[in-house]
Amino acid sequence: MAPTKVLVVGATGETGGSIANGLLEAGNFEVYVLVRRASLRKPALLELQKRGVMVREGDLRAPEPELLNALSGIDVVVCSVGPADQPDQIPLARAAKKAGVKRFVPCGFITVAPPGGVMWLRDQKEIVYNNIKQLWLPFTIVDVGWWYQLSYPRLASGKIDYAMTMANDEIIGDGNARNALTDLRDIGRYIARIIVDDRTVNKMVFAYNEVMTQNEIYDLLEKISGEKIERKHISEETVQKRLVTSRQSSETYPYDPEKLVPRYIAEYQYSWGIRGDNNPEYASYLGYLSSKDLYPDFKPIAFEDYLKTVFAGTAKGIYTDRIKRFE
């Protein structure tokens, strides 16, 4: 049987890189990436090409004939684009319908949250999902919970700063909200199974590894490191104030995508920390299929094992091109 031809959009990013890697490791896919001309010499792309990934040059904002050319012969499209770029997937989905793509995986890959005003990012994704459904284009939506790589706090010694993007030193509310976690590296491994599974066509899938509270994460890192970590609790009232301020700031004219960053953070904290949305039970209520039910033989990376590599100094940091500041 011929291998499934998959086009990955955003393969040089964190999630997209995991997806490309998972497909390559699975060994039963022809992996293509959609790349703008300006990005053809990116080191991450050159590394993927060395491993057999094929490049389709194109831009999500290009005219439809160019998109159709990029989609020629493709079976599955998997998108991983930036928060502010979600609408750019809509023209690609229209072209995918015309090109006969068998499945379109839009850029989900966030925590579980309901549509309709809880998280701006979720609502932007929902606009894309609705456009796909209007096309009658086969789809699968995949959400993955909160990354291991963003879920643990800083140690006062600074020993794990090398792997951190932010101090991450706030406990939301009482710290007992149950939060589904996934190692970034496992996302691609899940995708390699999901996109060839007929059970997931036109479905939402929640792919996650473990469920822990913030208090449990602090306890675990204290055990591994031998260091006591200050527990800085942030009240629901404080989170609500941040919501109001960040939403007002992000809605001013002219549009500035940088002003959305505090809003993303506040809305994530509100959703998973205060509302408690990001857990398997709520995902089931919203209609997601569970990776635990679909793939009981899947062996995810254990969170404790990941934290041990962080403390040992052997973990790979994420968003390493961004400035890290710790107060």
Rank of each mutant, 00 (worst) to 15 (best):
V201L: 14
D197N: 12
L71V: 07
P115E: 13
T12P: 02
N179I: 14
A62V: 00
D75I: 08
S284I: 11
E251K: 08
I194L: 10
L45R: 01
F29H: 10
L294K: 11
P300F: 07
Q124W: 05
N179F: 00
R322T: 08
Q86S: 05
E57S: 06
I172G: 06
V310C: 04
G52T: 11
K324Y: 14
Y32H: 15
P262S: 03
T15L: 12
W146V: 11
I171D: 09
A62C: 01
A93D: 08
E47H: 13
S18Q: 08
W147I: 01
D169L: 04
V128Q: 06
D219I: 00
D59C: 06
F311M: 02
L307V: 03
T165M: 14
G82L: 07
E30R: 07
F303W: 14
I160T: 14
R36I: 02
T4L: 13
L60V: 03
V77G: 04
G273S: 09
S151W: 08
V201F: 06
I195M: 10
K133L: 02
P115T: 15
D59S: 13
V31I: 12
D198N: 09
V81I: 09
E47P: 01
P153F: 02
I19D: 00
N278R: 09
A84C: 01
F109V: 03
V9D: 05
Y268S: 11
E57A: 07
K102T: 00
A163N: 14
E230G: 05
L34N: 00
H233M: 07
G52Y: 10
D123T: 06
D186F: 05
D297H: 12
I110L: 09
G317P: 13
I323F: 12
G145D: 01
E216M: 07
G175E: 12
E304Q: 14
R325P: 00
D293N: 13
I187V: 15
E126A: 04
P106Y: 12
G27P: 10
S290V: 01
A95N: 12
F311V: 00
K241M: 13
G276D: 06
Y264G: 03
D297R: 11
M166S: 15
V205A: 07
P65S: 03
V33H: 09
N130T: 03
D174Y: 11
I171G: 06
S246A: 15
I301S: 11
A93Q: 10
Y270A: 05
E25L: 15
E230M: 09
K223N: 08
P115Q: 12
S271T: 02
M1R: 12
S290I: 02
D123V: 05
F206W: 03
I187G: 04
D85W: 00
V81C: 03
E304M: 04
C79A: 14
R247Q: 07
Q49C: 13
G226P: 03
E327V: 08
G317I: 01
Q149S: 06
E222K: 00
K223L: 10
C79Y: 07
P63V: 03
E327A: 11
M204R: 15
V35P: 01
F139Y: 15
L60I: 06
V112G: 05
M166T: 14
K5H: 13
V112K: 05
P153C: 04
D197K: 12
Q269M: 03
S72V: 05
I265L: 11
L221D: 01
K316T: 04
